[in-house]
Amino acid sequence: MAKAKRQDAWEFFGELLKERRETAGLSRNDLGARVFVSGTYIGLFEQGVRKPQLDVAKRIDEVLQTGGIFERTCKKLIDSSPYASYFHAVAELEAVATKICEFAPTVVPGLLQTPEYMRAQILAMYPFATEEYIEEKVTARLDRARILEGATRPEYWAVLHENTLLTPVGGPAVMASQLEHIATLARQRWVLVTVLPRSVGAHAHMTGTLKLMEFQDQPPTAYTETEFSGTLLDDPAVVKQAQRAYDLLRVATLSPEASLALIESAAEDYRRCARTT
């Protein structure tokens, strides 16, 4: 219900944007050029399909001279999201993507995480967090992960650095269940996961995570994230560079079959360790 209300609010944002733009006598392309996005994106904002980042909302206020209404509305909607301010738009895009490709250098991607793994990771980052806070974050990630279920799920690729398998988040039992979960999804052919061996050494994307998203009728996007911030990339030239980096990562990985065998072997090692402790 809360998600539906937020979507209604974004649709209102879009309707208001269209009204104020037309009142100002500007086309979508005119406004887009002045706020440094394409006219296509302005149209997607107006339809409520895509959500502008806060800096874009600020520039829209400046161009349309609306006294900050778009910035305030955008900030209120971002603040009501269970995600970090820099990630809320990414979560919305995941839900409508037809293809998602991820690279995880150290931590299992959120869409593949088990609840126990989530809790351990969140607690490691926020050791003084309340149970309520942790459960809110876990619930939000589980809601995101539901896009991998059912007939309309996106095509999902993940490249996991071998370090991701070897870092025992939450302890052996948690890691065993986590890797078994990934293996199950792969065997069901819901996801395609490959592993980048440590022996590769230097690789095409050395800093943070990388996510690529494709859509039915929207331009592709890329998203990069480090420890405390993330950047959604719309510029076609930059997205093309990110796609090339991901292609280079993929050709350096083990085959899907060898990757699955390595994941299952690591899961069994963790399971054995859990039984002896």
Rank of each mutant, 00 (worst) to 15 (best):
A4I: 11
K5Q: 13
R6D: 10
Q7E: 14
Q7S: 13
D8E: 15
A9V: 12
A9R: 15
F12N: 11
F13Y: 15
K18T: 11
E19H: 08
E19C: 08
E19L: 11
G25T: 08
L26V: 08
R28F: 02
N29Q: 14
D30W: 05
V37H: 03
S38L: 05
T40V: 10
L44C: 01
L44K: 08
F45C: 04
Q47G: 08
R50L: 13
K51G: 00
L54N: 00
D55A: 00
A57S: 14
K58Y: 00
I60R: 14
I60D: 02
D61C: 13
V63K: 01
V63G: 00
G67D: 09
I69C: 07
F70W: 02
K75A: 09
D79R: 11
Y83L: 02
A84M: 06
S85R: 05
H88T: 15
A89Q: 12
V90P: 02
A91G: 12
I100M: 04
A104S: 11
P109S: 02
P109T: 06
L112Q: 12
T114V: 12
P115S: 04
I122W: 01
L123T: 15
A124D: 08
A124I: 01
M125R: 05
P127A: 10
A129P: 02
T130K: 04
V138L: 03
A140G: 05
A140F: 07
R141A: 12
R144M: 09
R144K: 10
A145K: 06
R146I: 09
L148A: 08
E149W: 00
E149T: 03
A151E: 11
P154Q: 09
V159G: 09
L160V: 12
L166K: 12
L166D: 14
T167I: 10
P168E: 07
G170L: 14
G170N: 10
V174D: 11
E180T: 07
A183M: 03
A186S: 13
R187I: 01
R189F: 06
V191R: 05
V193G: 13
L196C: 14
L196P: 05
P197N: 08
S199H: 11
V200R: 14
G201M: 04
H203G: 10
A204E: 07
T207E: 03
G208A: 11
L212H: 01
F215Y: 06
D217A: 12
D217E: 02
A222I: 06
A222Y: 03
Y223N: 06
Y223K: 02
E227F: 10
E227R: 03
S229F: 10
T231P: 09
T231M: 14
L232Q: 05
L232G: 03
L233S: 03
L233W: 01
D235H: 10
P236A: 10
P236C: 09
V238Y: 10
V238T: 13
V239A: 04
K240F: 11
A245W: 05
D247N: 13
L248T: 00
R250S: 01
V251S: 05
A252L: 09
L254H: 01
E257H: 06
A258G: 00
L260D: 12
A261K: 13
A261Y: 04
I263L: 08
E264R: 03
A267R: 05
Y270C: 03
Y270R: 06
Y270E: 08
Y270M: 03
C273F: 01
A274I: 07
R275T: 11
R275V: 02
